[in-house]
Amino acid sequence: MSDTHTHSGPPPLHGVMAEFKTADELIAATRAARLAGYTRMDGFSPYPVGEVADELGFPRSEIGAIMFIGGLCGATMGFLMQTWVSVIDYPISIGGKPFWSWPQYVPVSWALLVLSASLCGLFGLLALCGLPQPYHPVFNVDRFTRATRDRFFLLIEAVDPQFDPAKAKEFLASLHPDDVAEVPE
């Protein structure tokens, strides 16, 4: 806390951000930034633009694997649970069927497959994206409220190995953005 009173220099930067009007401009800018050697970037858009993620070097998400494993676990556990209940712990004769009448365990196993795959997907998304996260430095930029409205933003993060505030701003300005802003930490 005392630091805020004595600190006299500029606030530490999270990165530098440029604002674009269209998704295509953002895609082109991201590509240009990647070709210029920047590696720690992020793009923001009001709706999904897959090409931006491609340019950012994130061609494939982890969600598919998570949901596959989640679904498999759910179905297996469901099937074993029914087997254990109906064969071992509480065997009752129903219409003379065998205790291990496995085709009849399929509906519940299937429901549990879908249930656990979906929940794993949801919580996987939140965990991987670090959500919920009400505060993030990008929200410090006033114009960033338009990222959910009609504008597209490219952020070059300060953790990028070749990050230099002045050079990064100059580079972003060369991409014909609407606005370039510093993102305070």
């Binding site: 923001f44 009001p46 999904p48 996987g124 994206c129 919920p132 993030h136």
Partner: peptide, 26 residues
């Protein structure tokens, strides 16, 4: 609070779209 701090990051969108598609598939 309800949007969980969503900020429209391209990384998040990629995962989001995959989740959405798989949920549709299931």
């Amino acid at each position: 609070l309800l949007c969980l701090g969503w900020r429209g990051s391209a990384f998040h969108w990629r995962r989001y779209e995959k989740l959405y598609l798989l949920l549709a598939g299931l």
